[in-house]
Simulated scan of single mutants.
Amino acid sequence: MKSALTARELKVLELIANGYTHDEIAEQLVVSRGAVNGASQRAVMRLGALTTPHAVYLATQAGILPGRPKRRTGPPRQPLTARQAEVLTAAADGASLTIVARRINSTREQVSARLAEAYLRLGVTHLPRGQRRTAAVNTARKRGLIPTADKERAA
């Protein structure tokens, strides 16, 4: 361990260890996302870590962070952005990326990126590639993040 952490770096590292996103940490600490990113990177550097998870591990091993962190329960406060929800809704019927892009006046690459972000936020990235979209749509519908199939047909 190279040197001690500042109070801000320690708090950011602790919140990261507990499963908060950088945006959620910024909101909680009333700072910018850039300030959170900077504090995170400085903590990594000060601890001589390779990555942020490695910094959390080293801080825990050194006794700087308490034992095993408690994970937050439930979904994040804002699990999908409006654009991610729009793309997931348009892709819910299993259409190709090109067709979804045409539907929402976007590009194939942007649709692919938004779907990947949605998969990550909905926690379906561990599934095989062919099952992710269906699982994401089902999860988002259960949480009320996108309209159900009945509402889509009625609209």
Rank of each mutant, 00 (worst) to 15 (best):
L10Y: 12
V30Y: 13
Q110P: 07
P69D: 02
V111Y: 02
L58C: 06
R68T: 13
V111C: 01
R133S: 01
H22T: 11
V31A: 00
P75K: 12
R102K: 13
R132N: 02
L145N: 02
L13P: 07
G63T: 02
Q78Y: 11
G38M: 12
T21I: 06
L50T: 15
T81L: 06
G123A: 04
A90E: 00
A49E: 08
A85G: 01
L10Q: 14
Q78D: 15
L88G: 00
V12Y: 05
A49C: 08
G38P: 07
R77L: 12
D150T: 15
Q28P: 08
K2H: 09
L5P: 02
L50Y: 12
V87Q: 00
R121E: 11
R108G: 04
E14K: 15
T81I: 04
S96V: 03
R46S: 08
R83H: 04
G19R: 08
A92T: 00
A4K: 14
A154W: 08
I25R: 13
E86C: 03
L15G: 05
A90V: 00
A62V: 01
I25M: 07
G130W: 15
T60D: 10
A59D: 06
R77A: 09
G38Q: 14
R153A: 12
Q28L: 15
G144M: 00
R129A: 11
L47T: 07
V137H: 05
E24H: 05
I16R: 11
H126P: 03
R114G: 05
S106T: 05
P66T: 12
G67W: 07
V30R: 09
T107Y: 04
I64N: 08
P69A: 06
L13Q: 10
Q61S: 11
L80E: 00
R114F: 11
G94N: 09
E86M: 05
T60Y: 14
R72I: 03
P147N: 03
S106E: 02
E24C: 02
G34L: 07
R77T: 10
V36K: 10
P53H: 11
R68L: 13
I16F: 10
E9D: 03
R103Y: 03
D93F: 06
L10E: 10
S40W: 08
T134H: 13
Q131R: 10
T89K: 03
R141Y: 02
R143I: 10
A140W: 01
P128C: 03
T52C: 09
G34P: 02
P53T: 07
R153N: 08
P66V: 13
P66Y: 09
A90K: 01
L15E: 14
V124C: 01
A43P: 03
G34I: 03
P76K: 09
R71V: 14
L88K: 03
L5N: 05
V111I: 01
L120G: 12
T21R: 09
L127H: 02
G63D: 04
I64P: 05
E14I: 07
M45Q: 14
R143D: 04
R114Y: 08
G123R: 13
L120Q: 13
L80V: 02
L58W: 09
Q41P: 05
P147R: 00
A113G: 10
R72S: 04
G67C: 04
R42M: 09
A82I: 13
